[in-house]
C-alpha cells in the first residue's frame, strides 16, 4: 500500500523551475532511493514534500490524505519527518536539548522514554549528552540529526544526503542505521550522492536529472543499464 504518493510535483525558485512533473510512490515499509547528479532537484523534491518549499503544482498524498503545501510542523504531527540537507542541528543547544526539540510533539513521559531508547541506540551521543551540538564531529552531528528526527517516531523518514562529508567508516555506520530503521518498520526515502552504495540496500530507486525523474527501478535493474545509468547519475556511481 502506498504510504506516499507524489503526482506531477513541480517546484519553482522565482521563474526557474527546479523540479518538473515528478511522480514518486513509496510503499509502507520500503526503503526508496532518490539519486542523481548535483542540481538534479533531489533536495527540492524532498523539501517540496516536507513543506519547506511549497510546490508550484502537483499533489502530495501521505497515508491517503492530501498534504500538498502543508506546514512542516503539521506534517511532522501526521508522521512525516525530514532530516534536512546540511543536518541543521541546533548548534547552541545541547545534544539532549536537540533531541527534546525532536520530541516536542510527544508528551513528557513518551519523550523521556524515547530519550532513553535513543541514548542506548546512539552511545556516541549518550556520551556527549550535555555537550553543545556545535562541538560535535561530522559523524556525531549526523547521528544527532537522525536521532532528533526519530524522536517523533515517524512513519516516513525523508533523509537528505545523510553521508555527505563523512569519513568512509562513518558512511558505513549511517548506511547500517538506514537498514536497521527499515528493518524496524520505518519507511524511508533517502537522497544520496553515493548512488551505488544506496542501490545495494534500497528496494527501489528513482533517478533524477535536470529536475525530472529520468528513470526508476530496483537497484539491479538500474545497474543493469550500465553506461546509460552512469550517464544519468553523472559518473561516480
Amino acid at each position: 500500500m502506498a504510504l506516499l504518493e507524489v503526482e506531477d510535483l513541480s517546484c519553482r525558485y522565482g521563474s526557474i523551475t527546479a523540479v518538473r512533473d515528478v511522480d514518486l510512490v513509496v510503499d509502507a515499509g520500503e526503503l526508496i532511493g532518490l539519486i542523481g547528479p548535483n542540481g538534479a532537484g533531489k533536495t527540492t523534491t524532498l523539501n517540496g514534500i516536507a513543506g519547506l518549499h511549497p510546490p508550484a503544482a502537483g499533489r502530495v498524498v501521505f497515508d491517503g490524505a492530501d498534504i500538498t503545501g502543508a506546514a512542516p510542523d503539521a506534517l511532522l504531527r501526521s508522521g512525516l519527518a525530514l532530516v534536512p540537507e546540511h543536518r541543521r542541528i541546533f548548534v547552541d543547544l545541547t545534544v539532549e536539548e536537540n533531541l527534546k526539540v525532536g520530541g516536542v510533539t510527544a508528551d513528557r513521559r513518551t519523550r523521556e522514554q524515547r530519550l532513553d531508547e535513543l541514548g542506548e541506540r546512539f552511545p556516541v551521543l549518550r556520551a556527549k549528552w550535555t555537550t553543545h551540538a556545535g562541538y560535535l564531529s561530522g559523524g556525531e552531528a549526523q547521528q544527532l540529526a537522525v536521532a532528533r528526527a526519530l524522536m517523533s517516531s515517524p512513519r516516513l523518514l525523508l533523509m537528505d544526503e545523510p553521508t555527505l562529508g563523512l569519513a568512509p567508516t562513518l558512511v558505513d555506520t549511517i548506511f547500517e542505521l538506514v537498514v536497521a530503521l527499515r528493518d524496524a518498520g520505518t519507511t524511508l526515502l533517502v537522497v544520496e550522492q553515493n548512488a551505488s552504495r544506496l542501490l545495494e540496500i534500497a528496494d527501489r530507486a528513482y533517478v533524477m536529472r535536470t529536475g525530472e525523474v529520468a528513470t526508476s527501478g530496483t537497484g539491479a535493474e538500474l545497474l543493469a543499464q550500465g553506461d546509460l545509468f552512469e550517464s544519468y547519475v553523472g559518473g561516480g556511481a
Binding site: P72, L76, F90, V101, G102, V104, A149, M151
Partner: peptide, 8 residues
C-alpha cells in the same frame, strides 16, 4: 525552519 520540521 529546522524547528518547524521538528514539529515546533
Amino acid at each position: 525552519d529546522a524547528a518547524r520540521l521538528m514539529g515546533v
